[in-house]
Structures are given as C-alpha cells and as structure tokens.
Simulated assay, not measured.
Amino acid sequence: MQNPSKSEIKDILDRSKRIAVVGLSDRPDRTSYMVSKAMQDEGYEIIPVNPTIDEALGVKAVASLKDVEGPIDIVNVFRRSEQLPGVAEEFLQTDAPVFWAQQGLANEEAYRMITDKGRTAVMDLCIKVARAVIK
C-alpha cells in the first residue's frame, strides 16, 4: 500500500468540497466528530454517514453512501480496519474519486479493490492532520 504523495494529497484536499464521513459520531468527544468538525470549520461540506444517528454537526445523517445526494469528493472512513473491504465495496458503487481511511486504519484488500478500479486510496492518515500540514 502506498499513499499518494504530499503534492497529490494537497491537490485532493484543494479541489475537494464534499466529504462523506462513514462512521461519524454525533458525540463531540469522539475522534470522528472532532476531525469532521475541524474539516467543516475549514469550509468542507460534511455529510454524516451513520445509520445509528439522526444528525451530526448540524447535518442530517444518511444510512449509507448510496443515500448521499449529489457528488462526493472524498469518502472519509472511521470504521475498524477489518470493515474497510465492505466500505470499499459501497464506495465503488459511488462516483467518489477518493477513499480515505483515518489514522490507524488500513486494509490491503480494500486498498487493492479501490486502486484496481483506478481510484485513489489513502490509508492510515488523518485528513485533519494532512490538511494542516499542506495548508
């Protein structure tokens, strides 16, 4: 598994506007909430993808990626590494160009599924930290 270069990650974050966050919690003490709030504060539109909550960050949640209306630029994932292949399958049913697994999350099978289809996979990297570093 090889993540895109720093310049490629900068390009991804600079051109992206809408981030669907799989596993976004509605609890402010959770990492998914803190990271997504920081990205929202940076001007990104955050779409919560979690069937167990009604809303997060003032945005109505959807149950799955297929329920997101409109384009998705990045699918940011907060699910255990062993769940990434299932999320990757759902991701591949969207037009989203980038699958981003948060820090501590990586799965070779999911990575291959995504990159074999010509899409970009980022693994084991915090999107908030990446954004702060390339600003």
Results as ranks from 00 to 15, higher is better:
Leu92Tyr: 15
Leu24Asp: 11
Lys60Ser: 06
Arg112Val: 02
Arg112Pro: 04
Val122Glu: 13
Phe78His: 13
Ala96Ser: 11
Ala63Leu: 07
Val35His: 04
Phe78Ile: 14
Ala110His: 03
Gly118Leu: 14
Ile72Met: 01
Asn107Asp: 12
Ala63Cys: 00
Gly104Ile: 12
Asp41Val: 06
Glu109Tyr: 07
Phe91Gln: 07
Ile74Met: 08
Ala56Asn: 03
Gln93Arg: 11
Lys60Phe: 02
Met39Ser: 10
Glu109Val: 10
Ala106Tyr: 06
Gln93Leu: 15
Leu105Ser: 15
Ile134Arg: 00
Leu65Ala: 09
Val77Thr: 05
Ile134Phe: 00
Gln83Tyr: 03
Pro48Phe: 10
Tyr111Leu: 03
Asp29Gln: 11
Arg119Pro: 02
Glu69Gln: 11
Ala20Trp: 01
Asp67Tyr: 06
Thr31Ile: 04
Glu42Val: 05
Val129Gly: 04
Ser64Cys: 13
Arg112Gln: 14
Ala20His: 02
Gly58Pro: 10
Gly58Leu: 07
Pro97Cys: 11
Arg80Gln: 13
Glu42Phe: 01
Leu105His: 12
Lys37Val: 12
Thr31Asn: 10
Gly86Ile: 04
Ser32Val: 14
Thr120Ile: 14
Glu45Ser: 08
Val22Asp: 02
Lys135Trp: 02
Glu90Leu: 07
Lys66Cys: 12
Ala20Ile: 05
Val21Cys: 04
Ile114Val: 15
Leu125Asn: 10
Glu45Gly: 06
Val49Asn: 04
Gln103Arg: 10
Ala56Ile: 05
Gln93Glu: 15
Ser32Asp: 15
Asp124His: 04
Thr115Asp: 03
Cys126Val: 07
Leu57Arg: 04
Asp54Ala: 12
Ile46Thr: 14
Ala106Asp: 11
Glu109Cys: 11
Phe99His: 00
Asp41Ala: 14
Tyr111Ala: 10
Lys128Glu: 15
Ser64Arg: 13
Leu92Val: 13
Val87Gln: 04
Gly70Pro: 05
Leu105Gln: 14
Ile114Asn: 05
Val122Pro: 14
